[in-house]
Simulated scan of single mutants.
Amino acid sequence: MKTKLIPILLLTISAISCTTQKKLATETASKSEMEIQASLTDTQWILTELEGEKVDVDQGENKNINFLLNSKDNTFSGFFGCNTGFGSFILEDGNRIRFTNMGTTRMACPDMTIEESQVLEAFHLADNFTLNGNTLSLNVGRRAPLAVFKMAEIQKDLITEKYWKLKTLEGKEVKMADNQEREIYFMLKTDENRVVGFAGCNTFGGEYSLEEGNRIRFTQLLSTLKACPDIAVSEAEFLKVFELSDNYTIDGDTLMLNVGRRAPLAVFEAVYLD
Results as ranks from 00 to 15, higher is better:
L222G: 14
E207M: 08
P110I: 13
L68G: 04
S209A: 08
I36Y: 10
D73Q: 04
N247Y: 03
C201Y: 00
G85R: 01
T190Q: 08
T113V: 07
L131W: 09
T219W: 02
L239M: 13
L169M: 05
I184C: 02
H124L: 13
L221D: 00
A29K: 15
A147G: 12
E192I: 12
F186H: 02
D178E: 15
T130K: 12
A126L: 03
L11G: 05
R261S: 12
K165Y: 13
E235K: 04
L10I: 13
E181T: 11
L210T: 05
N179F: 15
R98D: 05
K156L: 12
F198V: 02
E121T: 12
L40S: 09
T100F: 13
T203W: 10
N95P: 05
R182G: 10
R262A: 11
S30N: 14
T224Y: 11
L69E: 03
Q220V: 09
G60K: 12
T3C: 04
V174C: 06
I154S: 00
T12C: 13
F149C: 04
I114E: 06
Q21Y: 15
T105Y: 01
M256D: 13
G213C: 05
M1T: 15
T84L: 05
N101H: 14
E192V: 09
L169F: 06
D253Y: 14
K4C: 14
A122Q: 07
I159Y: 00
Y185K: 04
E33N: 13
E121M: 10
T224F: 03
M187R: 08
K172P: 03
E170R: 10
A108V: 15
N258L: 06
I6M: 11
D56Y: 05
K31F: 09
N247T: 08
R98G: 08
F123D: 04
N202Y: 01
S14Q: 06
S32G: 09
Y208W: 11
I114Y: 07
T130C: 07
M187D: 07
V140Y: 04
G213L: 02
S245I: 03
A263R: 09
A263W: 05
D58P: 10
A236L: 06
F242R: 00
G206T: 07
F242G: 00
N139E: 02
I154T: 08
I6T: 09
K189M: 14
G206R: 03
S137H: 09
L125A: 14
T100Q: 04
L9G: 03
Q180A: 04
D253R: 15
E269F: 07
E212L: 06
T254Q: 08
F79D: 01
V259C: 02
R182C: 04
F89G: 01
L210Y: 00
V267I: 15
E115H: 06
K175M: 08
T168D: 12
E115P: 07
K72W: 06
Q180P: 08
I250N: 01
K31N: 06
N132Q: 14
D73Y: 11
I46G: 03
L239Y: 01
L131H: 12
L47T: 03
T100V: 12
F204M: 08
A147V: 01
V195T: 01
V241A: 08
G213I: 00
C201E: 11
T113R: 12
T41N: 07
